[in-house]
């Protein structure tokens, strides 16, 4: 292939695309690493934890999130598209009623929010939700 300006453009854009693709799993693994650190690599069950979040957030600055995991001793929230994946950890004390909590979080972009519950028997449960963060018009 002759190195014309056109070909060079094609080459360089392919390179950019490859780099971009390559960086995606790296982002995700930051969250995976954090989850592994929390669970010690234990298997993650599903079904005993509920994560309630809007499908589309009107503004990423304030996204309402609710977690509910009956029998959990702690629930940790992660956001896999944020610069730092950890969001919050709720530890439930002896006078906690339902093992649920609501808060409002920041999401930098459209991404997955993951909730990991540590149950009384030491096992772990996982729930996740994809939340689209919209770019406002003039309101944005």
């Amino acid at each position: 292939m002759k190195l014309t300006r056109r070909n060079l453009l094609i080459l360089s854009s392919a390179g950019v695309a490859a780099t971009a693709m390559g960086s995606l799993p790296a982002f995700a693994s930051l969250t995976d690493d954090a989850i592994t650190e929390l669970t010690g690599g234990a298997a993650l069950g599903e079904g005993a934890i509920t994560l309630t979040a809007p499908e589309i957030a009107e503004n990423g600055n304030t996204v309402p999130i609710e977690v509910d995991a009956p029998g959990a001793v702690a629930i940790t929230l992660f956001a896999d598209g944020n610069p730092v994946p950890n969001v919050a950890t709720f530890k439930f004390g002896p006078l906690s009623a339902s093992r649920s909590a609501s808060t409002r979080i920041r999401l930098a972009t459209t991404q997955n929010v993951v909730a990991i519950a540590q149950m009384e028997d030491g096992s772990f449960q996982k729930a996740s939700a994809n939340i689209k963060v919209t770019i406002g018009g003039c309101g944005g």
Partner: peptide
């Protein structure tokens, strides 16, 4: 006696809000 103990990271929104349940 403890009801809830929360660790907050910078991803918690301005004016942090929490809702939870307790037994008294």
């Amino acid at each position: 006696q403890n009801v809830i103990d929360v660790t907050l990271e910078p991803a918690i929104s301005t004016n942090p809000y929490f809702q939870f349940e307790a037994v008294v």
